[in-house]
Design a protein around this nucleic acid. Structure first.
Lengths: 240, 240
DNA sequence: CGTAATCTTGAGTCCAATCAACCAATGTGG
DNA sequence: CCACATTGGTTGATTGGACTCAAGATTACG
Protein backbone atom coordinates (compact mmCIF):
# COMPACT_ATOMS: atom_id res chain seq x y z
CA UNK A 1 0.00 0.00 0.00
CA UNK A 2 2.24 2.69 -1.25
CA UNK A 3 0.07 5.73 -0.87
CA UNK A 4 -2.38 6.93 1.75
CA UNK A 5 -5.27 7.31 -0.68
CA UNK A 6 -5.14 3.64 -1.56
CA UNK A 7 -4.88 2.77 2.08
CA UNK A 8 -7.96 4.80 2.80
CA UNK A 9 -10.06 3.47 -0.05
CA UNK A 10 -8.95 -0.08 0.57
CA UNK A 11 -10.38 0.25 4.03
CA UNK A 12 -13.74 0.39 2.41
CA UNK A 13 -13.78 -1.49 -0.89
CA UNK A 14 -11.68 -4.30 -2.31
CA UNK A 15 -9.66 -2.69 -5.06
CA UNK A 16 -8.30 -4.84 -7.85
CA UNK A 17 -5.07 -4.26 -9.72
CA UNK A 18 -6.77 -2.15 -12.37
CA UNK A 19 -8.12 0.14 -9.70
CA UNK A 20 -4.70 0.32 -8.16
CA UNK A 21 -3.04 1.32 -11.37
CA UNK A 22 -5.66 3.97 -12.03
CA UNK A 23 -5.08 5.51 -8.62
CA UNK A 24 -1.36 5.21 -9.20
CA UNK A 25 -1.77 7.09 -12.41
CA UNK A 26 -3.71 9.85 -10.68
CA UNK A 27 -1.03 10.27 -8.06
CA UNK A 28 1.91 9.94 -10.41
CA UNK A 29 2.28 13.64 -11.00
CA UNK A 30 1.92 14.79 -7.43
CA UNK A 31 3.83 17.95 -6.74
CA UNK A 32 5.39 19.45 -3.64
CA UNK A 33 3.45 22.38 -2.23
CA UNK A 34 4.43 24.80 0.52
CA UNK A 35 2.37 25.75 3.54
CA UNK A 36 -0.08 28.45 2.65
CA UNK A 37 -0.63 27.28 -0.92
CA UNK A 38 -4.28 27.33 -1.87
CA UNK A 39 -5.77 24.24 -3.50
CA UNK A 40 -9.09 25.95 -4.13
CA UNK A 41 -10.55 29.36 -3.59
CA UNK A 42 -14.04 30.34 -2.64
CA UNK A 43 -15.96 31.70 -5.59
CA UNK A 44 -13.76 30.12 -8.23
CA UNK A 45 -14.74 27.15 -10.31
CA UNK A 46 -12.54 24.27 -9.24
CA UNK A 47 -11.01 22.41 -12.14
CA UNK A 48 -9.04 19.82 -10.24
CA UNK A 49 -9.77 17.01 -7.90
CA UNK A 50 -7.06 17.26 -5.25
CA UNK A 51 -5.51 14.39 -3.36
CA UNK A 52 -3.41 15.25 -0.34
CA UNK A 53 -0.56 12.75 -0.17
CA UNK A 54 1.60 14.46 2.42
CA UNK A 55 0.91 17.33 4.78
CA UNK A 56 -2.27 18.76 6.23
CA UNK A 57 -4.75 21.13 4.66
CA UNK A 58 -7.98 22.77 5.75
CA UNK A 59 -11.22 23.95 4.27
CA UNK A 60 -12.22 27.37 5.53
CA UNK A 61 -14.65 30.19 5.04
CA UNK A 62 -13.92 33.84 5.59
CA UNK A 63 -16.67 35.70 7.39
CA UNK A 64 -17.69 39.25 6.77
CA UNK A 65 -15.65 40.56 9.68
CA UNK A 66 -12.51 38.89 8.40
CA UNK A 67 -12.46 36.01 10.84
CA UNK A 68 -11.71 32.58 9.53
CA UNK A 69 -13.81 29.53 10.27
CA UNK A 70 -12.19 26.22 9.49
CA UNK A 71 -14.93 23.86 8.34
CA UNK A 72 -12.84 20.77 7.67
CA UNK A 73 -9.38 19.30 7.96
CA UNK A 74 -7.62 17.16 5.40
CA UNK A 75 -4.90 14.68 6.27
CA UNK A 76 -2.79 12.56 3.94
CA UNK A 77 -5.08 10.31 1.92
CA UNK A 78 -7.96 12.77 2.03
CA UNK A 79 -9.43 14.18 -1.13
CA UNK A 80 -11.29 17.35 -1.86
CA UNK A 81 -14.65 16.21 -3.06
CA UNK A 82 -15.93 16.50 -6.55
CA UNK A 83 -17.48 19.89 -6.35
CA UNK A 84 -15.65 20.84 -9.46
CA UNK A 85 -17.36 18.32 -11.64
CA UNK A 86 -20.84 19.47 -10.89
CA UNK A 87 -20.65 22.90 -9.38
CA UNK A 88 -19.88 26.28 -10.68
CA UNK A 89 -18.13 27.90 -7.78
CA UNK A 90 -16.59 26.64 -4.61
CA UNK A 91 -18.35 27.77 -1.45
CA UNK A 92 -15.15 27.64 0.56
CA UNK A 93 -11.39 27.73 0.16
CA UNK A 94 -8.82 25.03 0.76
CA UNK A 95 -5.31 25.86 1.86
CA UNK A 96 -2.26 23.85 2.95
CA UNK A 97 -1.52 24.18 6.64
CA UNK A 98 1.88 22.56 6.22
CA UNK A 99 4.11 21.83 3.31
CA UNK A 100 3.21 18.59 1.57
CA UNK A 101 2.59 16.78 -1.67
CA UNK A 102 -0.63 17.02 -3.62
CA UNK A 103 -1.92 15.38 -6.78
CA UNK A 104 -4.11 17.58 -8.97
CA UNK A 105 -6.37 15.47 -11.15
CA UNK A 106 -8.53 17.24 -13.74
CA UNK A 107 -12.16 16.76 -12.87
CA UNK A 108 -12.86 15.50 -16.37
CA UNK A 109 -10.55 12.55 -15.73
CA UNK A 110 -12.25 11.73 -12.47
CA UNK A 111 -15.65 11.97 -14.08
CA UNK A 112 -14.70 9.40 -16.67
CA UNK A 113 -13.59 7.03 -13.98
CA UNK A 114 -16.73 7.39 -11.95
CA UNK A 115 -18.78 6.41 -14.96
CA UNK A 116 -16.74 3.34 -15.76
CA UNK A 117 -15.31 2.20 -12.48
CA UNK A 118 -18.09 1.36 -10.10
CA UNK A 119 -15.79 0.43 -7.25
CA UNK A 120 -13.83 3.65 -7.32
CA UNK A 121 -16.96 5.68 -7.61
CA UNK A 122 -18.34 3.84 -4.64
CA UNK A 123 -15.23 4.48 -2.63
CA UNK A 124 -15.23 8.18 -3.44
CA UNK A 125 -18.89 8.32 -2.57
CA UNK A 126 -18.00 6.85 0.77
CA UNK A 127 -15.31 9.52 1.27
CA UNK A 128 -17.87 12.22 0.70
CA UNK A 129 -20.29 10.66 3.14
CA UNK A 130 -17.56 10.54 5.71
CA UNK A 131 -16.76 14.20 5.14
CA UNK A 132 -20.40 15.04 5.63
CA UNK A 133 -20.49 12.96 8.80
CA UNK A 134 -17.52 14.79 10.16
CA UNK A 135 -19.13 18.12 9.41
CA UNK A 136 -22.20 17.05 11.35
CA UNK A 137 -20.08 15.87 14.23
CA UNK A 138 -18.39 19.26 14.30
CA UNK A 139 -21.78 20.93 14.37
CA UNK A 140 -22.75 18.92 17.39
CA UNK A 141 -19.36 19.47 18.97
CA UNK A 142 -19.39 23.20 18.50
CA UNK A 143 -22.98 23.63 19.42
CA UNK A 144 -23.55 22.86 23.02
CA UNK A 145 -20.30 21.70 24.53
CA UNK A 146 -17.91 23.91 26.34
CA UNK A 147 -14.35 24.60 25.45
CA UNK A 148 -12.73 21.74 27.30
CA UNK A 149 -14.93 19.09 25.72
CA UNK A 150 -14.68 20.72 22.33
CA UNK A 151 -10.92 20.73 22.37
CA UNK A 152 -10.89 17.17 23.62
CA UNK A 153 -13.27 16.03 20.93
CA UNK A 154 -11.21 17.50 18.13
CA UNK A 155 -8.02 16.03 19.55
CA UNK A 156 -9.63 12.61 19.70
CA UNK A 157 -10.77 12.88 16.11
CA UNK A 158 -7.40 14.00 14.86
CA UNK A 159 -5.69 11.32 16.86
CA UNK A 160 -7.83 8.60 15.32
CA UNK A 161 -7.60 9.95 11.80
CA UNK A 162 -3.87 10.45 12.05
CA UNK A 163 -3.42 6.97 13.44
CA UNK A 164 -5.26 5.50 10.49
CA UNK A 165 -2.74 6.88 8.08
CA UNK A 166 0.23 6.06 10.26
CA UNK A 167 1.00 9.52 11.54
CA UNK A 168 1.19 8.65 15.21
CA UNK A 169 4.59 7.22 15.84
CA UNK A 170 5.30 5.72 19.23
CA UNK A 171 2.20 7.23 20.76
CA UNK A 172 3.08 10.71 19.63
CA UNK A 173 1.36 12.94 17.13
CA UNK A 174 3.13 15.86 15.59
CA UNK A 175 0.38 18.44 15.52
CA UNK A 176 0.76 20.70 12.52
CA UNK A 177 -2.02 22.97 13.71
CA UNK A 178 -1.08 26.06 15.66
CA UNK A 179 -3.32 27.03 18.53
CA UNK A 180 -4.64 29.72 16.22
CA UNK A 181 -5.63 27.05 13.71
CA UNK A 182 -7.25 25.01 16.44
CA UNK A 183 -9.14 28.09 17.53
CA UNK A 184 -10.40 28.69 14.00
CA UNK A 185 -11.58 25.11 13.77
CA UNK A 186 -13.22 25.13 17.19
CA UNK A 187 -14.72 28.60 16.97
CA UNK A 188 -12.84 29.71 20.06
CA UNK A 189 -10.14 32.30 20.52
CA UNK A 190 -6.55 31.18 20.56
CA UNK A 191 -6.26 32.64 24.04
CA UNK A 192 -9.00 30.38 25.29
CA UNK A 193 -7.64 27.37 23.44
CA UNK A 194 -4.34 28.00 25.13
CA UNK A 195 -5.81 28.18 28.62
CA UNK A 196 -7.95 25.13 28.00
CA UNK A 197 -5.09 23.04 26.67
CA UNK A 198 -2.95 24.09 29.57
CA UNK A 199 -5.52 22.97 32.10
CA UNK A 200 -6.10 19.73 30.29
CA UNK A 201 -2.38 19.13 30.48
CA UNK A 202 -2.38 19.88 34.20
CA UNK A 203 -5.13 17.30 34.59
CA UNK A 204 -3.16 14.74 32.65
CA UNK A 205 -5.63 14.48 29.79
CA UNK A 206 -3.08 15.42 27.18
CA UNK A 207 0.59 16.21 27.07
CA UNK A 208 2.30 18.45 24.60
CA UNK A 209 5.67 20.01 24.11
CA UNK A 210 6.11 22.28 21.15
CA UNK A 211 3.90 20.56 18.63
CA UNK A 212 4.38 17.02 19.91
CA UNK A 213 1.13 15.75 21.33
CA UNK A 214 0.52 12.67 23.42
CA UNK A 215 -2.80 11.37 24.63
CA UNK A 216 -1.96 9.19 27.62
CA UNK A 217 -5.41 7.65 27.89
CA UNK A 218 -7.56 7.97 24.81
CA UNK A 219 -10.53 6.35 26.49
CA UNK A 220 -10.49 8.80 29.34
CA UNK A 221 -10.25 11.79 27.03
CA UNK A 222 -12.94 10.35 24.77
CA UNK A 223 -15.23 9.81 27.72
CA UNK A 224 -14.78 13.32 29.00
CA UNK A 225 -15.21 14.82 25.55
CA UNK A 226 -18.18 12.69 24.54
CA UNK A 227 -16.27 11.33 21.56
CA UNK A 228 -17.69 8.36 19.68
CA UNK A 229 -15.66 7.42 16.59
CA UNK A 230 -18.67 5.98 14.81
CA UNK A 231 -18.89 9.02 12.57
CA UNK A 232 -15.43 8.43 11.16
CA UNK A 233 -16.55 5.14 9.65
CA UNK A 234 -13.09 3.75 9.73
CA UNK A 235 -12.87 0.23 8.45
CA UNK A 236 -16.38 0.04 7.13
CA UNK A 237 -15.41 -2.90 4.94
CA UNK A 238 -14.13 -5.00 7.77
CA UNK A 239 -17.19 -4.14 9.79
CA UNK A 240 -19.51 -5.96 7.47
CA UNK B 1 -43.57 18.49 -12.23
CA UNK B 2 -45.80 16.58 -9.96
CA UNK B 3 -43.50 16.01 -7.02
CA UNK B 4 -40.90 18.10 -5.27
CA UNK B 5 -38.11 15.57 -5.72
CA UNK B 6 -38.39 15.75 -9.49
CA UNK B 7 -38.53 19.51 -9.29
CA UNK B 8 -35.36 19.53 -7.26
CA UNK B 9 -33.42 17.09 -9.44
CA UNK B 10 -34.64 18.74 -12.62
CA UNK B 11 -33.04 21.91 -11.40
CA UNK B 12 -29.74 20.19 -11.86
CA UNK B 13 -29.91 17.56 -14.61
CA UNK B 14 -32.16 17.08 -17.59
CA UNK B 15 -34.27 14.06 -16.73
CA UNK B 16 -35.81 12.02 -19.53
CA UNK B 17 -39.09 10.18 -19.34
CA UNK B 18 -37.44 6.98 -18.13
CA UNK B 19 -35.89 8.87 -15.25
CA UNK B 20 -39.24 10.39 -14.49
CA UNK B 21 -40.99 7.09 -14.39
CA UNK B 22 -38.33 5.62 -12.14
CA UNK B 23 -38.70 8.48 -9.67
CA UNK B 24 -42.46 8.13 -9.98
CA UNK B 25 -42.12 4.50 -9.11
CA UNK B 26 -40.03 5.31 -6.06
CA UNK B 27 -42.57 7.80 -4.80
CA UNK B 28 -45.61 5.74 -5.66
CA UNK B 29 -45.89 4.13 -2.26
CA UNK B 30 -45.33 7.22 -0.16
CA UNK B 31 -47.11 7.04 3.13
CA UNK B 32 -48.49 9.64 5.50
CA UNK B 33 -46.41 10.09 8.64
CA UNK B 34 -47.19 12.08 11.78
CA UNK B 35 -44.96 14.65 13.44
CA UNK B 36 -42.46 12.93 15.69
CA UNK B 37 -42.12 9.83 13.54
CA UNK B 38 -38.50 8.76 13.14
CA UNK B 39 -37.20 8.04 9.65
CA UNK B 40 -33.84 6.83 10.98
CA UNK B 41 -32.25 6.33 14.34
CA UNK B 42 -28.70 6.87 15.40
CA UNK B 43 -26.87 3.60 15.80
CA UNK B 44 -29.23 1.58 13.65
CA UNK B 45 -28.44 0.39 10.16
CA UNK B 46 -30.67 2.30 7.79
CA UNK B 47 -32.38 0.10 5.24
CA UNK B 48 -34.36 2.72 3.39
CA UNK B 49 -33.62 5.75 1.33
CA UNK B 50 -36.20 8.30 2.44
CA UNK B 51 -37.76 10.98 0.28
CA UNK B 52 -39.70 13.69 2.05
CA UNK B 53 -42.62 14.66 -0.18
CA UNK B 54 -44.58 16.73 2.29
CA UNK B 55 -43.72 18.16 5.67
CA UNK B 56 -40.43 19.05 7.31
CA UNK B 57 -37.94 16.77 9.04
CA UNK B 58 -34.63 17.24 10.78
CA UNK B 59 -31.41 15.37 11.36
CA UNK B 60 -30.25 15.58 14.96
CA UNK B 61 -27.77 14.24 17.42
CA UNK B 62 -28.35 13.73 21.11
CA UNK B 63 -25.46 14.83 23.27
CA UNK B 64 -24.36 13.19 26.46
CA UNK B 65 -26.22 15.70 28.62
CA UNK B 66 -29.47 15.03 26.79
CA UNK B 67 -29.50 18.19 24.73
CA UNK B 68 -30.42 17.93 21.10
CA UNK B 69 -28.40 19.44 18.30
CA UNK B 70 -30.16 19.69 14.97
CA UNK B 71 -27.54 19.18 12.26
CA UNK B 72 -29.75 19.48 9.21
CA UNK B 73 -33.23 20.30 8.04
CA UNK B 74 -35.16 18.52 5.33
CA UNK B 75 -37.92 20.16 3.31
CA UNK B 76 -40.20 18.60 0.72
CA UNK B 77 -38.08 17.22 -2.11
CA UNK B 78 -35.14 16.52 0.15
CA UNK B 79 -33.76 13.04 0.56
CA UNK B 80 -31.83 11.38 3.30
CA UNK B 81 -28.55 10.44 1.71
CA UNK B 82 -27.44 6.96 0.93
CA UNK B 83 -25.77 6.15 4.19
CA UNK B 84 -27.69 2.96 4.28
CA UNK B 85 -26.15 1.54 1.19
CA UNK B 86 -22.61 1.80 2.39
CA UNK B 87 -22.62 2.27 6.12
CA UNK B 88 -23.30 0.09 9.03
CA UNK B 89 -24.88 2.46 11.46
CA UNK B 90 -26.34 5.93 11.20
CA UNK B 91 -24.42 8.58 13.10
CA UNK B 92 -27.54 10.65 13.68
CA UNK B 93 -31.31 10.37 13.81
CA UNK B 94 -33.93 11.79 11.49
CA UNK B 95 -37.36 12.73 12.75
CA UNK B 96 -40.40 14.44 11.27
CA UNK B 97 -40.98 17.91 12.65
CA UNK B 98 -44.44 18.08 11.14
CA UNK B 99 -46.84 15.59 9.70
CA UNK B 100 -46.11 14.82 6.06
CA UNK B 101 -45.70 12.19 3.40
CA UNK B 102 -42.57 10.14 2.93
CA UNK B 103 -41.46 7.55 0.41
CA UNK B 104 -39.30 4.75 1.79
CA UNK B 105 -37.20 3.17 -0.93
CA UNK B 106 -35.10 0.12 -0.04
CA UNK B 107 -31.46 0.97 -0.43
CA UNK B 108 -30.96 -2.04 -2.66
CA UNK B 109 -33.33 -0.52 -5.19
CA UNK B 110 -31.51 2.78 -5.13
CA UNK B 111 -28.18 1.06 -5.50
CA UNK B 112 -29.33 -0.67 -8.67
CA UNK B 113 -30.38 2.62 -10.13
CA UNK B 114 -27.14 4.35 -9.31
CA UNK B 115 -25.27 1.69 -11.20
CA UNK B 116 -27.43 1.85 -14.29
CA UNK B 117 -28.76 5.35 -14.40
CA UNK B 118 -25.92 7.80 -14.67
CA UNK B 119 -28.11 10.86 -14.64
CA UNK B 120 -29.96 9.93 -11.51
CA UNK B 121 -26.76 8.98 -9.78
CA UNK B 122 -25.34 12.32 -10.75
CA UNK B 123 -28.34 14.15 -9.42
CA UNK B 124 -28.25 12.32 -6.11
CA UNK B 125 -24.54 13.00 -5.87
CA UNK B 126 -25.35 16.64 -6.30
CA UNK B 127 -27.92 16.44 -3.49
CA UNK B 128 -25.29 15.04 -1.19
CA UNK B 129 -22.83 17.74 -2.08
CA UNK B 130 -25.45 20.34 -1.36
CA UNK B 131 -26.17 18.75 2.02
CA UNK B 132 -22.48 18.88 2.81
CA UNK B 133 -22.30 22.51 1.71
CA UNK B 134 -25.16 23.40 3.98
CA UNK B 135 -23.47 21.67 6.89
CA UNK B 136 -20.35 23.73 6.28
CA UNK B 137 -22.40 26.90 6.05
CA UNK B 138 -23.95 26.05 9.40
CA UNK B 139 -20.52 25.54 10.88
CA UNK B 140 -19.47 28.99 9.76
CA UNK B 141 -22.77 30.43 10.88
CA UNK B 142 -22.64 28.91 14.32
CA UNK B 143 -19.01 29.57 14.85
CA UNK B 144 -18.29 33.22 15.11
CA UNK B 145 -21.50 35.09 14.57
CA UNK B 146 -23.72 36.26 17.30
CA UNK B 147 -27.31 35.37 17.86
CA UNK B 148 -28.91 38.02 15.70
CA UNK B 149 -26.87 37.18 12.62
CA UNK B 150 -27.24 33.47 13.24
CA UNK B 151 -31.00 33.63 13.40
CA UNK B 152 -31.07 35.86 10.35
CA UNK B 153 -28.85 33.50 8.40
CA UNK B 154 -31.00 30.49 9.10
CA UNK B 155 -34.16 32.39 8.23
CA UNK B 156 -32.63 33.44 4.92
CA UNK B 157 -31.65 29.89 4.13
CA UNK B 158 -35.06 28.50 4.98
CA UNK B 159 -36.75 31.25 3.05
CA UNK B 160 -34.76 30.46 -0.08
CA UNK B 161 -35.11 26.72 0.24
CA UNK B 162 -38.82 26.95 0.94
CA UNK B 163 -39.32 29.28 -2.00
CA UNK B 164 -37.67 26.81 -4.30
CA UNK B 165 -40.26 24.19 -3.54
CA UNK B 166 -43.14 26.61 -3.60
CA UNK B 167 -43.73 26.89 0.12
CA UNK B 168 -43.77 30.66 0.31
CA UNK B 169 -47.18 31.79 -0.74
CA UNK B 170 -47.79 35.47 -1.18
CA UNK B 171 -44.58 36.43 0.56
CA UNK B 172 -45.36 34.39 3.63
CA UNK B 173 -43.71 31.30 4.98
CA UNK B 174 -45.46 29.03 7.40
CA UNK B 175 -42.65 28.14 9.73
CA UNK B 176 -43.09 24.62 11.07
CA UNK B 177 -40.20 25.00 13.49
CA UNK B 178 -40.97 26.03 17.03
CA UNK B 179 -38.57 28.43 18.67
CA UNK B 180 -37.28 25.40 20.54
CA UNK B 181 -36.48 23.72 17.24
CA UNK B 182 -34.80 26.85 15.98
CA UNK B 183 -32.75 26.98 19.16
CA UNK B 184 -31.64 23.38 18.68
CA UNK B 185 -30.59 24.14 15.13
CA UNK B 186 -28.79 27.34 16.05
CA UNK B 187 -27.19 26.09 19.24
CA UNK B 188 -28.91 28.77 21.27
CA UNK B 189 -31.52 28.57 23.99
CA UNK B 190 -35.12 29.06 23.09
CA UNK B 191 -35.19 31.99 25.48
CA UNK B 192 -32.47 33.72 23.57
CA UNK B 193 -34.00 32.89 20.20
CA UNK B 194 -37.20 34.46 21.42
CA UNK B 195 -35.54 37.67 22.53
CA UNK B 196 -33.53 37.89 19.34
CA UNK B 197 -36.52 37.33 17.07
CA UNK B 198 -38.49 39.89 19.00
CA UNK B 199 -35.84 42.54 18.53
CA UNK B 200 -35.43 41.71 14.87
CA UNK B 201 -39.14 42.21 14.51
CA UNK B 202 -38.94 45.55 16.29
CA UNK B 203 -36.25 46.56 13.83
CA UNK B 204 -38.38 45.50 10.89
CA UNK B 205 -36.07 42.74 9.74
CA UNK B 206 -38.73 40.08 9.99
CA UNK B 207 -42.36 39.89 10.85
CA UNK B 208 -44.12 36.96 12.37
CA UNK B 209 -47.45 36.18 13.86
CA UNK B 210 -48.01 32.72 15.19
CA UNK B 211 -45.94 30.69 12.78
CA UNK B 212 -46.47 32.91 9.77
CA UNK B 213 -43.18 34.54 8.82
CA UNK B 214 -42.58 37.38 6.44
CA UNK B 215 -39.25 38.80 5.41
CA UNK B 216 -40.00 42.31 4.21
CA UNK B 217 -36.59 42.87 2.66
CA UNK B 218 -34.60 39.73 2.00
CA UNK B 219 -31.59 41.69 0.80
CA UNK B 220 -31.40 43.71 3.96
CA UNK B 221 -31.67 40.67 6.17
CA UNK B 222 -29.15 38.80 4.05
CA UNK B 223 -26.73 41.69 4.26
CA UNK B 224 -27.00 41.95 8.02
CA UNK B 225 -26.71 38.19 8.46
CA UNK B 226 -23.87 37.72 6.00
CA UNK B 227 -25.96 35.32 3.95
CA UNK B 228 -24.73 34.32 0.50
CA UNK B 229 -26.94 31.71 -1.17
CA UNK B 230 -24.06 30.32 -3.20
CA UNK B 231 -23.87 27.31 -0.93
CA UNK B 232 -27.39 26.25 -1.75
CA UNK B 233 -26.47 25.75 -5.40
CA UNK B 234 -29.97 26.30 -6.56
CA UNK B 235 -30.36 26.08 -10.28
CA UNK B 236 -26.90 24.75 -10.95
CA UNK B 237 -28.06 23.47 -14.31
CA UNK B 238 -29.26 26.81 -15.52
CA UNK B 239 -26.06 28.38 -14.32
CA UNK B 240 -23.95 26.53 -16.81
C1' DC C 1 -62.89 23.50 28.01
C1' DG C 2 -58.99 22.14 30.42
C1' DT C 3 -54.30 20.73 30.11
C1' DA C 4 -49.95 20.81 27.97
C1' DA C 5 -46.84 23.02 25.07
C1' DT C 6 -45.00 27.15 23.54
C1' DC C 7 -44.02 31.89 23.93
C1' DT C 8 -42.65 35.90 26.65
C1' DT C 9 -40.29 38.72 29.97
C1' DG C 10 -37.13 39.65 34.01
C1' DA C 11 -33.07 39.09 37.13
C1' DG C 12 -28.76 37.14 38.09
C1' DT C 13 -24.70 34.34 36.68
C1' DC C 14 -20.95 32.47 34.03
C1' DC C 15 -18.10 31.12 30.14
C1' DA C 16 -15.52 32.80 26.73
C1' DA C 17 -14.19 37.19 24.28
C1' DT C 18 -11.52 41.18 24.44
C1' DC C 19 -7.74 44.00 25.52
C1' DA C 20 -3.10 44.15 26.78
C1' DA C 21 1.25 42.75 27.94
C1' DC C 22 5.29 39.75 27.77
C1' DC C 23 8.06 35.68 26.49
C1' DA C 24 9.99 32.10 23.46
C1' DA C 25 11.21 30.41 19.12
C1' DT C 26 12.24 30.99 14.51
C1' DG C 27 13.96 33.25 10.64
C1' DT C 28 16.21 37.05 7.98
C1' DG C 29 19.44 40.31 6.28
C1' DG C 30 23.39 43.10 7.06
C1' DC D 1 27.13 35.91 13.74
C1' DC D 2 24.11 38.94 15.69
C1' DA D 3 20.35 42.88 15.68
C1' DC D 4 15.87 42.63 14.39
C1' DA D 5 11.25 41.28 12.90
C1' DT D 6 7.66 37.98 13.01
C1' DT D 7 4.94 34.44 14.59
C1' DG D 8 3.14 31.62 18.18
C1' DG D 9 2.47 30.80 22.95
C1' DT D 10 1.36 32.40 27.82
C1' DT D 11 -0.86 34.94 31.42
C1' DG D 12 -3.83 38.63 33.76
C1' DA D 13 -7.79 41.93 34.12
C1' DT D 14 -12.02 43.25 32.42
C1' DT D 15 -16.22 42.96 29.68
C1' DG D 16 -20.21 41.13 27.57
C1' DG D 17 -23.36 37.92 25.24
C1' DA D 18 -25.77 34.02 26.09
C1' DC D 19 -27.32 30.76 29.74
C1' DT D 20 -30.00 29.71 33.79
C1' DC D 21 -33.68 30.01 36.71
C1' DA D 22 -38.21 31.47 37.31
C1' DA D 23 -42.84 32.94 36.61
C1' DG D 24 -46.69 34.43 33.83
C1' DA D 25 -49.24 34.86 29.29
C1' DT D 26 -50.71 32.80 25.22
C1' DT D 27 -51.73 29.24 22.05
C1' DA D 28 -52.56 24.50 20.56
C1' DC D 29 -55.00 20.50 21.04
C1' DG D 30 -57.69 16.38 22.66
Amino acid sequence: MDNPLMAKLSGFVELDSDDHSLLDCWCADAVAVPAGRHLAREGEKPTNFCIVLEGWACRYKLLADGTRQIVGLMLPGDTCDLHGSVLRRADHSIVMLTAGRVAFVPTTIVEQATEQRARIMRALWWCMLTDASIARAWLANGGRRQARARVGHLLCELWVRASEVGLTSSGQLTMPLSQIDLADALALTSVHVNRTLRRMQEDGLVRYDRREFTIPDLNRLAAEAGFDPIYLRSGAKRGR
